[in-house]
């Protein structure tokens, strides 16, 4: 594959992301997020990072979005809610845009320099990746695993206490 396709896919991902964060409807935003993640996956494939691309599709675009979908299903998607959401966004976007612009403009100026001389992207060897993750980076991998376990325990805890306390709150 080629750099050109990777850049094009990443541009698509950026466009989808910008649209995603400005949608009023959570469903639209989620679909655009999905599009963005899929485009990123395409960019990974284009850069010959096949393993990363596969993982991106399976975990990110698959599992993570699926979790989101379950939650989004519970969201109020009525027209009034949309209008409320739009009003909130309209009242709040200026300062964040200004602050983000502060950072973006210098970065845009930083594109220049260097020549378009790169060869084709090098393919990352998955075997090498495994050796890296479970060899030199063993501790980091363990830490990520630990973090995932902590997340799991946390979710379990939050989920368990949800029922009775919600009922209690409902009565209040």
């Amino acid at each position: 594959m080629s750099w050109g396709f990777a850049i094009w896919a990443a541009t698509l991902a950026l466009a989808a992301a910008v649209l995603s964060v400005t949608r009023a409807s959570a469903v639209h935003a989620l679909l655009l997020l999905l599009a963005s993640l899929l485009a990123l996956g395409a960019a990974f494939f284009a850069m010959s990072a096949n393993f990363a691309g596969v993982i991106q599709l399976l975990i990110y675009a698959g599992a993570v979005v699926a979790v989101f979908v379950f939650v989004v299903m519970t969201v109020d998607a009525s027209e009034t809610a949309m209008a409320h959401e739009r009003k909130l966004l309209r009242s709040a976007w200026r300062w964040p845009a200004l602050f983000v612009g502060l950072s973006v403009i210098p970065i845009l100026f930083g594109i220049g320099g260097g020549a378009m001389d790169a060869g084709a992207p090098a393919a990352a060897d998955t075997r090498e990746l495994g050796l890296l993750l479970f060899g030199d980076w063993g501790v980091a991998t363990e830490l990520v695993a630990l973090m995932l376990i902590a997340g799991m325990i946390g979710v379990r805890h939050l989920g368990r206490s949800l029922g009775p306390r919600l009922r209690e709150r409902g009565r209040e």
Partner: peptide, 13 residues
């Protein structure tokens, strides 16, 4: 302007 530059700017974006 290398492809890496562009990709990095896109990632920052």
């Amino acid at each position: 302007m290398t492809p890496l530059n562009i990709l990095l700017v896109l990632s920052a974006g």
